[in-house]
Design a binder for these strands. Sequence first.
DNA 1: TAATTGTATTATTTGTAATAGTACAATTAT
DNA 2: ATAATTGTACTATTACAAATAATACAATTA
Lengths: 120, 120
Amino acid sequence: MVVNLDFKKREPIYEQIISEIERYIALGILKPKEQLPSVRMLAMDLGINPNTVKKAYDILEKKKVIETISTKGTFIAEKTDFVKEEKKNQFLEEMNSILLELEKLGFKKEEILKELKKES
Amino acid sequence: MVVNLDFKKREPIYEQIISEIERYIALGILKPKEQLPSVRMLAMDLGINPNTVKKAYDILEKKKVIETISTKGTFIAEKTDFVKEEKKNQFLEEMNSILLELEKLGFKKEEILKELKKES
DNA sequence: TAATTGTATTATTTGTAATAGTACAATTAT
DNA sequence: ATAATTGTACTATTACAAATAATACAATTA
C-alpha cells in the first residue's frame, strides 16, 4: 500500500490519508482484518508527524472502517463492503452538484452528459 | 447582483466572490461595460473587509474579466464570452477527473453516466 | 528486558486568509 | 470650492486550522 500525498492541495493531509486507505479498501488491496502500519511507522514513511496519522486513524475508526486493538495494532474492519458504496455515492454527489452548477449556467444536462461520454 | 458567500466552505471568500461575479457574467446578468459595486460598498454589503474584495477584483482584472479605471470605478470587460466557456470547461474537467477516480475503483463509465441521468 | 503497540495530553509552529488602519491622488457631486 | 467617492498601495495584525514537537503511560511481544 502506497499512500500518495499532495502537500500542495487544499485538502489536509489527514483527509488525504483517509481517502487513500479507503481507496485501497475499495480496490480490495487492503482486506478485512489486515494489519495497517502503525501510527509511527506510517508517519515515518510519509515524513509527517505521528499525530497527523493518528488523527486519520481516529476518524477511520469512528467510521468503522478500521479497528484498533491497544498494544496490538490497527486493522481493517471485518466488514468493508460499505466503503466502496460510500465512495461511489460521495463521487456521485460531487458530480451531481457540479451538474447543477452547469445547469444554473444554462447548460442542458443531456448536452453535458454527451460531452462526458466523448472525452477521456 | 447578489453575491452569495459561504463562510463554512474551505474555498476562501475572495475565490467565492470571483466565482459569483463570473457566474453572473456567464448568465448575462452582468453585462459588458456595466459598473460593479466599489470595493468599499461590496465589502460593506458582505460584511467583510475591503481588502478581501480588492483581492478578488485584482485577480478578475488579471483574467481580463473586469477593468478598473482609477477614480471612476470597476467595470465588466467589453468582451466576456470567454467567461462562460471557461466555466464550462472548468466544470467539465472536474467531472472528468471524478469520473476517472470512479473508473479507478472499478466502476464503468456507462454505468455512472446512467445514474447521473436518473438523478436530480 | 528491550522494543513496539495504542493512547493521551499540552504547547508550539506554520501557513494562509482575512482584517485593521492609513494614506494618497483623481474624479464626481453638491 | 468642498466634501465624498473612487481606485490604489502598503504594513501590521489577527484568526484559524493544520501540523509538529515533546513526552508519557500501560500492555503486549520478541
